[in-house]
């Protein structure tokens, strides 16, 4: 039954998602073309246009998330939900399906965006290829240093952290919807959209606070690290674990890994907690 539900959801959303993916590809290509023009002609207009197109391409990623979360909104707040919630599956299956599909389609959007920009950016150093160039940079830097493992670790850590942060944001979306649904049905409030807005804003601000906290924490750790006397003590000889932790000519990688791990932990745990609460609401408290 879960597979069928997944199939149904893909069927419902694929038209829109494909359209947005196409938009992302087109916008990314247009961005790079205007970037080339801007570089060759030094035209300010072209440069400004490039920024607009770039934002459009990035917006595409957000819109994918909105479309997918929209399916969850329809489930909880519209007449269509009455049909979908009386399907012979557990209520939480709807949440699971939406989370899986939503996060995957956002990842796919990011991969598409990064790939197109990266391929077009090949060889030139534009700021627009940041994500792609960044990842490539990490890898090359550590590769030329001969420390492949470090490079891999850092890259994996950063990518994972990014992925978890994005998943967290998506789940926050769903969490806001589910909590709003609960508030609306428990207190018989008719202003559904108002409740969603307020809950969404509160959650958004909590998220901002969390990010601010994490950044502060990392600043502290960084400051500590620069005091650490053994930091670039020994050159790479044998790659024992201790050596591996200590050696770093730039002192960046350990920061990146730590940064990644902290993000992974904080965002991962909050995402999990929100998901559990959502699931609980779906299974025991959902009333439409």
């Amino acid at each position: 039954m879960k597979k069928k539900l997944m199939k149904q959801e893909i069927r419902e959303t694929k038209k829109w998602i494909m359209l947005i993916y196409a938009c992302i590809v087109i916008m990314s290509i247009v961005t790079m073309i205007t970037a080339l023009i801007a570089m060759n002609t030094k035209s300010v207009t072209a440069e400004e246009l490039m920024v607009v197109f770039l934002l459009c391409a990035m917006m595409g990623i957000v819109v994918v998330g909105i479309v997918m979360a929209g399916r969850f909104y329809d489930l909880l707040f519209t007449e269509e939900g009455m049909i979908r919630l009386t399907l012979p599956v557990k209520n939480r299956a709807h949440l699971q399906t939406n989370v899986k599909l939503g996060i995957l389609s956002i990842y796919l959007a990011i991969v598409i965006y990064t790939a197109v920009i990266g391929i077009m950016d090949n060889g030139n150093v534009f700021l627009v290829g940041e994500l792609y160039q960044g990842l490539k940079g990490y890898y090359e830097m550590y590769l030329t240093d001969g420390v492949v493992l470090k490079a891999l670790l850092t890259t994996i850590c950063s990518v994972l952290a990014g992925a978890v942060v994005i998943a967290n944001y998506y789940i926050t979306f769903l969490f806001a919807l589910a909590v709003s649904r609960r508030i609306v049905s428990k207190h018989g409030i008719m202003q559904k959209k108002g409740v969603i807005f307020i809950v969404g804003m509160v959650l958004f601000n909590i998220q901002l606070l969390v990010i601010w906290g994490i950044t502060k924490l990392i600043e502290v750790i960084e400051a500590d690290l620069s005091w650490y006397p053994l930091r670039s003590y020994r050159p790479v000889g044998r790659l024992s674990f201790i050596d591996f932790l200590r050696y770093d000519s730039e002192g960046i990688w350990i920061k990146d890994v730590l940064f990644g791990l902290i993000f992974l932990a904080v965002y991962g745990i909050t995402a999990l907690v929100m998901y559990r609460i959502c699931r609980n609401i779906m299974e025991r408290k959902l009333e439409v």
Binding site: T78, E79, E80, M82, I83, T86, L87, P88, V89
Partner: peptide, 14 residues
């Protein structure tokens, strides 16, 4: 839910 067929009081599909 597998043995109950339900028609809501409003048209359910957009």
């Amino acid at each position: 839910k597998a043995i109950v067929s339900y028609s809501p009081d409003r048209l359910a599909f957009d």
